[in-house]
Nucleic acid binder design. Structure first.
Lengths: 354, 354
DNA sequence: TTGTACGCGTTATCAA
DNA sequence: TTGATAACGCGTACAA
């Protein structure tokens, strides 16, 4: 052991009290005379006491029930990754007495969300990680948790006006900005750049709005010499399976001013890719996330870049934020932005491996 | 605690022996009858015993002296990051009894390398992480370590023909390939693409050779329609401070066939950037690593992309590989490629923050 | 308000 | 070749 490990016992000796007393001031359990308290506190500072977390978790038989609320990973492929990240963290934290319960909801049904949130709340966990895709429906639960002093961590979707322990995720605005660069970079011809929202309820999704803002701001900040003849448009598309989808899309592509690039604001770039194949490299396509379908079109060349939001890491660090707070008593940053990885065909395999 | 945690005591009871005996078979300490040994082993399997690492490290007062050998972070800015990563890991591992000693060498002096390697070896550490920039001079030490059964982990620079516990770093070939894409992407005009080696002893550096190979292969795999009129050349430049440097470089830029892009094979893109400023965006520049000088030119626009080799993570995971082997008895993958992050002005701030 | 003693799961020592 | 038993540092009843 690091030779100079200061123990609770050392403080007790130096302060002429018992280890029980030191323990009480250490955890503010009360029942200790003020003057004694001060003396112990002083000794702790002098000796630079650092609690031994190993011994602490071994000694206390405390367990921590953590809850995770996210869209079902069996219903939507994107949510597989966060689910894995959360479970990976849970396995690592098992030896610290952590048990995890996941509450998956159907992201196409608000009532499913509310139902799972209610279940998670009823279980009275010691902490909650949540991807709050439904804005309005989330708020009342946050209030209840705040009142019950249950720490909760947001991931994937940021919601202002509330005070989570932490938010773990990507900076949507910056990712939109970056998408703009990837579409326009090296292109000199005039034409149209599209941002496509596929089956999104934009009004209820801060997320997508921020991406669009970033995307538009990229073009706005370009020098005038480069923006001449360039149009930026946003389009709303229905679910890819709807009959209207194909018609709407091909209509857009057949317009007078040629389309130079399309930025898909969600992970559904694969739905657009087949329609771009006839245009070969003439229309750039940038989207999000390493779904199997996206990977396919990236390798094939129709999708030029994918922006990876590190979904697995989002889940992983989300749960760890709770552990840092509850178990390790570390300071938890209120905001943890994960890097936006730019993935091209050539560096793809690094990401699919892990 | 996970209620059904099987303890050494449970095995002892089920096998009708004492915990001492179980401990002996668990660690192959010998001094135990073969039939008893088999019985205990069987019980362990039946109960699916998983050792409690927390209790183990608390009980054993073992300490682990680890050594790190890398170029001095005060002499070359690149090595600041790995140094930080190693130290971060060391801090986290402190409570597991890990102490770290760093042996920095002057990367411009072979004798300094040999000297520090000798010191590290003399200290008889329990494990070593090393960035072996000097190929030939490393080999004899690896042999000594192998003989002394000291596990060692390579990072940053891969050396074949030896058997380290693990290599942590980037895939040089792929990064060269990727650099090719970033230079050529979206460019249609004919011209020259350069790969510049600045003050590199290429013969003794597998590293750089692999980068060049990847770079050339990128252009080789392009469809013929895109490679017409394209030349790929490699150039060796002296130290940026040498008088010959500027002359050589400006001579290259003034040639008949216009230069479309330059790929700098090391972290010294900043040395070339000033000479490209007159050409504005006409010549793309791609390099490695987030050094302060590189960041400056990236923000300013002269450098288009930087490939980040995750140097901090290299150090961090390098040390952790040793800990996983020695302390946590986890399986250590022989190869851990870190992602090649593509960094543009727009996503820069994620990387400088962390 | 304070101190004592035992338990957490494992390692390590020493006696049998 | 075995089995008790005291550490490891801390939490926590319970007694004083």
């Amino acid at each position: 052991m690091s030779k100079n490990a200061v123990r609770i016992k050392d403080i007790a000796a130096k302060a002429n009290v018992s280890v029980g007393t030191v323990d009480r001031v250490l955890h503010n359990r009360g029942r200790v005379a003020e003057d004694v308290r001060q003396k112990v506190l002083l000794m702790m500072q002098e000796l630079e006491y650092e609690p031994n977390m190993i011994a602490r978790t071994l000694g206390s038989n405390r367990t921590y029930q953590l809850a995770a609320v996210q869209p079902s990973h069996t219903l939507d492929p994107y949510w597989q990754a966060p689910w894995e990240g959360i479970n990976k963290a849970a396995r690592e934290l098992q030896q610290y007495g952590v048990t995890l319960r996941v509450y998956p909801y159907d992201m196409s049904r608000v009532d499913s969300f509310r139902e799972q949130m209610e279940l998670a709340t009823q279980a009275q966990p010691d902490g909650i990680v949540i991807a709050p895709l439904f804005y309005r429906e989330s708020l009342p639960f946050f209030e209840r948790w705040q009142h019950a002093k249950i720490p909760y961590v947001l991931f994937n979707t940021y919601i202002t006006e509330i005070n989570p322990l932490s938010y773990v995720g990507q900076d949507s605005y910056q990712s939109g900005f970056l998408a703009g660069k990837l579409l326009q970079f090296g292109q000199t011809q005039p034409g149209t750049y599209l941002i496509a929202h596929i089956a999104e309820d934009i009004a209820n999704s801060v997320h997508v709005t921020q991406k669009e803002q970033g995307f538009r701001d990229y073009f706005a900040q370009l020098p005038a010499s480069q923006t001449a003849g360039i149009t930026v448009r946003s389009i709303d598309l229905p679910y890819p399976t709807e009959p209207a989808f194909a018609g709407r899309l091909t209509g857009l592509l057949a317009q007078n001013q040629p389309v130079r690039g399309i930025f898909v604001s969600t992970s559904r770039a694969y739905a657009i890719a087949p329609y771009l194949q006839p245009y070969a490299a003439a229309i750039r396509l940038v989207g999000y996330d390493l779904l199997e379908e996206n990977i396919h079109y990236l390798q094939e060349g129709t999708i030029d870049f994918l922006i990876n939001q590190n979904p697995k890491e989002q889940g992983y660090y989300g749960l760890y934020a709770l552990a840092d707070q509850l178990i390790f008593k570390k300071e938890v940053p209120p905001l943890k932005y994960l890097p936006l990885d730019i993935i091209a065909k050539e560096n793809l395999h690094y990401y699919v491996e892990k």
